[in-house]
Simulated assay, not measured.
Amino acid sequence: MSGQFSGRRALVTGAGQGIGRALSIKLAEMGAQVFALSRTKSHLDTLKAECPAITTVVVDLSNWDQARQAVSALTPIHLLVNNAAMASLDSVLEAKPEDFDASFNINVKSVMNVTQVVAGDLVARKQKGSIVNVSSQAGQRALKDHLIYCSTKGAVDMMTKVMALELGPKGIRVNAVSPTVVMTAMGKIGWSDPAKAGPMLARIPQGRFAEVEDVVNSVVYLLSDQSDMVNGHLLPIDGGFLAA
């Protein structure tokens, strides 16, 4: 298991904290040559200190040209995880146009940008690859005060399917994971209030939120050859939330 991804180059966006950070470390432990991308240098510095084998890349994905140039310099990339995202939580009547633009730029447009570079290079080299987009249960179920966030993740879900349809014949699989609330450091702060957490937990049959490892393990499966016939799917990591 430790050498499962030996000889493969992996890129994880939004790798400075939370899911992206844990995933980068896991992939390195499993033998991949990992490139961890984030816009926050201090987060990447601590990641590098924790796992020196990882190559860190500081770039703002909201800048189309700079992101494209930075990712191009890393190719070939055989395993891509589009994890970078932001959350802007407002109601329908209070959502702001600047938050809409910023959220779609990071959560959706950057996925297209990075994937175009990585997949385009693989196609040119006639090499296979696997891509996982980190979506959310919010892409499939309406949540109060999540107008913009739900919309971006719904877009990621359909983008995943179109990518799978077009890239599958070229040997590149594309899937997505759709977690419920994840207990990252930020998640613990945002959902530590029982009054807020209670109603959401009541909608999850397993009665708990996801841990970072739950998401990491699912992404690893989708990246691996063990899921070789899985393409174009949205894998819920939600304890049954979407089944209710």
Rank of each mutant, 00 (worst) to 15 (best):
33 Q>I: 15
50 E>Q: 09
54 I>E: 05
63 N>I: 08
95 A>M: 15
48 K>Q: 05
114 V>I: 03
25 I>Y: 02
57 V>E: 00
21 R>F: 07
92 V>A: 09
87 A>V: 13
24 S>V: 04
48 K>N: 06
16 G>Y: 01
111 V>Y: 13
73 A>T: 12
48 K>R: 04
34 V>H: 00
44 L>E: 07
92 V>K: 09
77 I>A: 01
112 M>E: 10
87 A>Q: 04
112 M>W: 05
104 F>A: 00
111 V>F: 04
51 C>I: 14
64 W>V: 15
111 V>S: 02
107 N>G: 06
56 T>M: 02
15 A>V: 10
22 A>T: 02
18 G>V: 06
54 I>G: 01
108 V>E: 05
76 P>W: 14
33 Q>E: 10
79 L>K: 12
30 M>G: 00
27 L>F: 02
38 S>H: 04
74 L>C: 01
53 A>K: 07
81 V>A: 11
61 L>C: 15
25 I>R: 01
55 T>A: 13
88 S>A: 13
55 T>V: 11
24 S>I: 05
51 C>P: 06
97 P>S: 14
84 A>D: 01
81 V>C: 06
52 P>R: 07
53 A>Y: 02
60 D>M: 08
74 L>R: 15
105 N>H: 12
59 V>D: 15
31 G>T: 00
65 D>V: 07
103 S>G: 10
93 L>V: 10
17 Q>N: 00
60 D>R: 07
105 N>E: 15
21 R>M: 00
25 I>L: 05
41 K>R: 01
94 E>S: 13
37 L>V: 00
88 S>M: 13
16 G>P: 03
